[in-house]
Each structure stands twice: as structure tokens, then as C-alpha cells.
Design a protein around this nucleic acid. Sequence first.
DNA 1: TTCCGAAATCTTGGATCCAATTTGCGTGCC
DNA 2: GGCACGCAAATTGGATCCAAGATTTCGGAA
Lengths: 242, 242
Amino acid sequence: MSERETRTAGASAPSAEALQKLAGRHQAGYRSVGTMAYDILRDAILDGTLAPGQKLRQETLAETIGVSRLPVRSALIQLEADGLVEFHARRGAVVKALSAEQAREVYDIRVLLEIDALRHSMDEMTPERIARLRELGRTADAEEEGADFVDARTQFYAELYGAAARPVHWEMIEQLRLKVGRYVLGWRLVGGGEHGHSHEELVAAVEAGDADAAAEVLRSHLTGVRDAVLAMLSAEGGAAAR
Amino acid sequence: MSERETRTAGASAPSAEALQKLAGRHQAGYRSVGTMAYDILRDAILDGTLAPGQKLRQETLAETIGVSRLPVRSALIQLEADGLVEFHARRGAVVKALSAEQAREVYDIRVLLEIDALRHSMDEMTPERIARLRELGRTADAEEEGADFVDARTQFYAELYGAAARPVHWEMIEQLRLKVGRYVLGWRLVGGGEHGHSHEELVAAVEAGDADAAAEVLRSHLTGVRDAVLAMLSAEGGAAAR
DNA sequence: TTCCGAAATCTTGGATCCAATTTGCGTGCC
DNA sequence: GGCACGCAAATTGGATCCAAGATTTCGGAA
């Protein structure tokens, strides 16, 4: 039952098992099946289960995660808006790849936006928020696996940038982080994590009220990650950048 | 046929005629009905046909623009991703309003992003692009009505910022412009257009190669529009900002 | 043997149909 | 007379069904 399927299922079969495992983690009580499908597919793209260039057949995805094609279509539309998948007219959807140039753009803009967000946020900093930041940074460093790793760090930066006070600004930052999330994950698996201490370093600068120092820590962290991502994308060659 | 309908159709009837007119302009050959519905509804929100706070009943919209409910749902999902509408679980969708604080955020970020885009673009400026900019600026100034007015200006800025060379950067800028597009339109209708000359002023600075001057023109233009939008939002009070 | 064309199959996109949930109204009780 | 509970109607969300288009394969001809 598995020797002939290789040809039939083409590029979509290899991820079936892993995708089902992801679907299992999301089986909890969702209000709508569409949002569940969105979360499953988004996580699948972020952790590499659905690789860039992968062709996304609606029916295959639908029966893999156990729903109809309709919520899958809803999810794909949302993912297209996020820039994670790409629709080719009547020819279906594929997981969008980020070129090296686009990744560089993302990090250039992130430096701009995140430093600005940090400065705004530091104007409204409180001891309570500092304490909360330390706590979130610790749990973020503790998390190791795919999607949870991203979630924990997201919470840290949401607090750091004052997401609640500047929702639009934070929304933009999140979109950019989403675009490069999978490459950071891939890089982390390959290159190891010597960046773990930047959380504490950042919090220390914020606590000291030194905006320039905090901005510099942030900038060097982002450019460091950027260079690592770019190196990985160059190493993989045109395959992922197609 | 119009005296009793006011109560029956509630908040959605007043826009029916105008919406149908918009639908007529988009009746051209679309590949998918979903994208057509998206364009129609997006334009309707941008030009105020669908006002902020407006409740969007899927069936009403569907029969007004002459399609089924399914492509309307697709369009609404996309519009939610754009931040133009808001889904309330099982209770339907409404046109999202922008608070004054959020509008301020949008313009703050736009200053950051657009000045940076302009500087990058000026590094790759050519006489051909200058000429094209002049042409686009002229046609943009000529356009007066709703959606076309936005389109023409979008083309101008796409060329100014080198959208082709920096697609991610441009995508971010477009998202932000989309969020405030309707308020600019509203402000323009109210306040008149003393901002028309900024196109030529901008092109002149770009042609001279003076990045700082061009950035300053852009910044003052954006902050000027921002203040006008904020004034309008404050004047309307909590109605639009709810 | 290779290239072009046509037909068949597969896949996306749309419409109608059905179920589930929410909201509004009416009635009954306190 | 007011509030609460329950029922009914309407609207959203999901599934199955149908049509349109694209791709691939097979066959024929050069």
C-alpha cells in the first residue's frame, strides 16, 4: 500500500503523516473549522512540514486534516493574504518561497519597524512590564520545538513592543515575522542557537532606560539572524528561491 | 417602493443602489467571481458606499452584486486579512472602523517606511523613471473621482518607491495606504485639494538627487494628510471610531 | 522517430442544500 | 410592571454536487 503510492500522490504524500500529527494537536474545540484548518496549515508551513514550492491540492489537504474542501479553501485564501501561499489562477496553490532579496527586504524593514516600536514602547515602560518581559524571555528560551518556539518568542516581543498600545504597528511586525518564520526555524535547526542570551541583554537595556543601547542590541540581533538566513538561502541555491 | 424599505432593510439598504453601480463597473471578464466580488466590495468600502460600522449580510451582498454567497465569503475573508472588515464569530461581518489612534499609527509607520523606500529607490533612479514619474503624476492629478483617484496615485507611488525592485516593502506600504484610503477620500471631499502640487515638488527633488529634500517633502505631505484625517476623525467623534 | 493535435481525466471554482448557533420576541412568573 | 426563560426565525458556516478549464497522455501523421 506504500510502494505504488509514491508516484500517485506525487509531491504531496511525503507530508501526509506529519500533517496529520499537526492536525491532531489542533483537534481542540474550535468555533469554526475554517480557522482550525488555517492554524494547521500555517503551522505546517512554518515548521517545514509543507516545504516551499510544495503543491497544495485542496482535496488531499482536506481529507488529511479531516474536513471538507471548503474550509481548506478559506484557509488557503487567508494564507495567500499572509503571503505564505500563492494562487496560480485555475492551477491551484503552492507554498510560496522567499527569495534572498525578499528576505533581505523583510529584515531591513523589520529593523526599521521594530526599533521604532521599541522606542515608543520604552516611553511607556513600567516595572511590571519589565518583570513580565523577564518571565516571557525565560519561557521563550525554554521552548525548543517548532511552533511553540515561535509562539513563546512572539509573546515576548508582543510585550516588548507594547503590542496592546500600538496594534497596527504590531500587526505589521507580525506579518513580517510570519514571512521569515520558517527560515529562522530552519536556520536554528542547522546553525544552533548562540542568540539565546539576546533576550536578557535586551531586557537589561530596556530596564536601564537606555533606548540607544536597546536599539543597538535589537539591530545587531536582527542583522545577525538576517545574515544567517541569507547564508542558508544562498547555500540552498535556487531551489528554495524559485 | 422607497418609503417603507427604510425600516425593513435596515442599515444595508441605503447602499444597495450605489453598490450595484460599482458592481456594474466591474462586470468585465474576471477569471474568478471571487476576485470580482473582492474588488467590488473593496472599492465600495474605499469610496464610502459601505460605511464603517456597516453590517455586511452575506446574502444581501450576494444578490446585490449578482453572485452566490460563496464568492462573497471568499471576498470577506480577504477583506478581513486586509483589515477592512471584522468577523464576529457566528454573528457576521462589519466594516471595520479606524480609531484616531490607529490612524496616527498608520501615518507614523508610513513616514518611516515610505521615506526609507524613497531613499532606496533614489539610489537606482534613472532619467526614464523620472519621465515616467512626471507622466504618472500628471494623470494622478487629473483623476478626480473615487476609486480611480486612488488607483492613479497608487501607480505614481509604485514608480516612486521602486515597487518592482522591492516588492515586500511596497506590499507593506500598500497595506497601510489601503487602511486609510477611505478617510483620505472623505477628507479630500471635505477639505479640498491643496496637496496637488506635492507630486511635482517631489519629482523635482528626486530629479535633483537631493534625498533629504525629497524625504522632507514626503514627510510634510504625509503629516499634513495625517493631521487632516485626524481632525476629521475627531470631528466625527466616536461614530467612526467606535 | 518526433512533433502536433485531440480527447479524457483530474482539479479548481461555483451553486444549491443542510445543520448549528445566535438573536429577538413573546409569554409566564415573581 | 419588570425580568427571565423558552421558543422560533434568521443568518452564518459546512458538506455534497455540478460545471468549466487545464494538463497530460495517447494516437496519428510527417
